[in-house]
């Protein structure tokens, strides 16, 4: 593949990974109003767990259990979900800011454990992740195959999430987001709903991590900095909290800006840090959206449930 096509495939695959993350945050924040600032932590858990599960045995890190790729994805989701359950169970009944604080802490702890537990994760040196199904196509077409796999995962997830929220279940989530006391006064077990959503969303972050690892084929703790969490939040807020298509557009737009600004380095005067400019532009985008179109590119759908048809 030529350089330009290769870059496009790389860009799209990366955008798909973030699309998965955005769908996860959308169920938590967009539909339910849960503040999870630890997206990167669950993302990391998913990436490393999948790497352990599907990798070949190695004395330098945990596992290498040689499991099939889909099994790795499922285990990555399961482990992320278990972390969310352990984290959420004591915190979910407290005021909402506690969840925000606890999730920030969780993500940093995960990252520091990855850095320090070199026997398990190879620490800052990073560990390799296998290319699933790599014998299926010639090496030069592999990235295209993997884009297809990632898109398939995203499509299944999108359908599942859309169906989940456009239902009486989703209507209850919107209710407790709008006004928790109303939900309680009408018999909804608010803590149970919140815990379900925290776990479900975090499983999706884990899934994104697994898809990311098998795409990059190399993961280090630096892939899971708090910055990642920030980017996903911008995607959801800019794209449209509570609209699954909206947040996918948000993921595409933010990823596009991020990568697009790489090309700026050719035109900018020497000495200007592209990293700083990138952040400033993303920040500006967020401010702009909040001021001009607070509901995001696409707003929430009007009717909550579609089980009787639109």
């Amino acid at each position: 593949m030529s350089g330009a096509v290769g870059f496009l495939v790389f860009f799209l695959t990366y955008a798909v990974v973030y699309g998965i993350l955005a769908l996860g945050l959308n169920i938590q924040w967009g539909f339910t109003g849960l503040v999870n600032f630890g997206v990167a932590g669950f993302f990391a858990v998913g990436a490393y767990i999948a790497a352990f599960m599907t990798g070949t045995p190695s004395p330098y890190h945990l596992g290498g259990f040689g499991l099939p790729f889909p099994v790795g994805l499922l285990i990555a989701m399961g482990v992320s979900g278990i972390f969310a359950l352990i984290l959420g169970f004591p915190v979910i009944r407290l005021r909402e800011d506690y969840l925000a604080i606890v999730t920030i802490g969780f993500a940093e702890i995960v990252r520091l454990i990855i850095v320090t537990e070199k026997n398990i994760t190879k620490g800052p040196y990073g560990m390799g992740v296998i290319k699933p199904y790599k014998d299926l196509v010639p090496a030069s077409y592999y990235s295209l195959l993997y884009l297809g796999i990632a898109l398939l995962v995203l499509a299944i997830l999108y359908v599942a999430m859309e169906r989940a929220v456009r239902s009486p279940w989703g209507r209850a989530l919107r209710t407790l987001r709008e006004d928790e006391r109303v939900a309680i006064a009408f018999g909804k077990n608010v803590n149970s709903f919140k815990l379900q959503v925290l776990v479900l969303g975090s499983m999706i972050f884990g899934l994104a991590g697994a898809v990311f690892g098998h795409f990059f084929n190399f993961i280090t703790p630096n892939h899971f900095l708090p910055m990642e969490t920030f980017l996903v939040w911008v995607m959801v807020m800019a794209g449209g909290s509570g609209n699954n298509i909206g947040v996918l557009l948000g993921a595409l737009a933010v990823r596009g800006l991020w990568e697009g600004m790489m090309f700026l380095s050719d035109v900018l005067p020497r000495g200007i840090q592209i990293g700083a400019i990138r952040l400033a532009v993303i920040g500006l985008l967020l401010v702009l959206v909040v001021m001009v179109k607070p509901e995001g590119i696409l707003g929430e759908k009007k009717t909550a449930s579609d089980i009787l048809g639109e």
Binding site: P168, R171, R174, V182, I307
Partner: peptide, 22 residues
Amino acid sequence: LSKMTVIDNLMVAPLDQMGETL
């Protein structure tokens, strides 16, 4: 529930809705 329609405001109220599970 300001960002929900009037009918959704009503439809969320009944207890023990089977559809309220994932």
